[in-house]
Simulated scan of single mutants.
Amino acid sequence: MDLVRRHPVAAAAVAAALLVLVALVVPLPGGSGDGPAGGPGAAGPDGGTTSVPRPTSSPSMTIAAEAADATSGLVRPSVVRGHEPAGLSGSGGVLNVRAHRITLSVRSSDPIGVVGYNIPTSRDRPSGVVRGVGRSWSLSTRVYGRPDYAQMFLQAGPASVSMTCTITVDGKVTEQRTTTGPYGQLFCQG
Rank of each mutant, 00 (worst) to 15 (best):
G181I: 00
A159D: 15
P55C: 05
A150H: 02
L74V: 11
M61H: 12
L21K: 09
G93L: 07
V20Q: 14
A42E: 00
P36F: 03
G145K: 09
V130Y: 04
T168A: 05
T168E: 09
S122R: 00
R177C: 04
G184S: 15
D124N: 11
S140P: 02
A23E: 08
A99W: 00
A65L: 12
H83A: 13
A150V: 06
D124Y: 07
T121F: 07
L88V: 12
A10V: 09
V106M: 10
G134N: 05
S162I: 01
M61E: 06
R131E: 13
R125V: 11
P59A: 10
P40Q: 04
S78P: 14
G30S: 08
V161G: 14
L18C: 13
A65R: 11
A15K: 06
P36Q: 01
G41E: 01
V14H: 06
V161T: 15
G90D: 04
R98M: 10
S58H: 15
A16E: 11
P120D: 03
V79H: 11
R6D: 15
T121A: 11
R6N: 10
R146Y: 09
S140V: 02
S60P: 02
P182F: 07
R142N: 14
G134H: 03
R6H: 10
V4E: 13
A42I: 00
L3C: 08
L154S: 03
S162L: 04
V4R: 14
V14R: 09
H83E: 13
L95N: 04
V115G: 00
P120S: 07
A67H: 09
V173W: 07
V26R: 11
Y149A: 03
I63M: 07
E66R: 15
M61Q: 13
V143Y: 02
V80C: 05
H83W: 12
G33N: 05
H83K: 10
V169K: 00
Y144H: 12
G181D: 03
R101T: 15
V130F: 03
T180V: 11
S58A: 15
D170P: 02
T71W: 05
G90L: 04
L74A: 14
V22H: 12
R54G: 07
S122I: 00
P158I: 07
A65C: 06
L104K: 01
E66W: 06
P45A: 03
L139C: 07
G44V: 00
Y117N: 00
A65V: 06
V161P: 06
A65E: 15
S127M: 09
S160R: 12
